[in-house]
């Protein structure tokens, strides 16, 4: 029985923003299917009442004093940008989406 379909793999690729060739999609479907089949053996393990382990060594979150230290100089912040324009990172024109944090402005 197949655990994941080509269509699901295509959907995932959209979600993960990966352009995959048809060949890659086909191979990916097979690979993920085999891996999911393997991990399915975990279903037999009874984990009721077990607290999820999110951190290996448990201690409380340390807190940082609210102090400002020097920012990166603008040129260093932008030095690695594949495309820089003035003091901005440049990207193809954004069509604002619902997920944005409301920081949209027209120039």
């Amino acid at each position: 029985m197949s655990r994941i379909t080509v269509e699901e793999v295509r959907e995932l690729a959209v979600l993960a923003r990966l352009a995959l060739s048809e060949q890659e999609i086909a191979r990916m479907t097979g690979d993920l299917d085999a891996i999911l089949d393997y991990v399915d053996a975990m279903r037999e393990l009874d984990t009721t009442g077990v607290e999820p382990m999110t951190h290996a060594v448990p201690f409380d979150c340390p807190l940082r004093a609210d102090q400002v230290a020097p920012s990166l100089p603008v040129d260093e912040a932008l030095a690695n940008a594949p495309r820089r324009e003035a003091n901005f990172f440049q990207v193809p024109r954004i069509v604002p989406g619902p997920a944005g944090g409301g920081g949209e402005e027209d120039l």
């Binding site: 995932l12 979600l15 993960a16 990966l18 352009a19 990916m28 891996i35 999911l36």
Partner: peptide
């Protein structure tokens, strides 16, 4: 991302998203 990542990172990104 399609050009930049090799096969194994792609596989793990996909499985992880799943």
């Amino acid at each position: 991302r399609g050009e930049g990542f090799g096969a194994e990172p792609k596989r793990r990104i996909m499985l992880g998203a799943y």
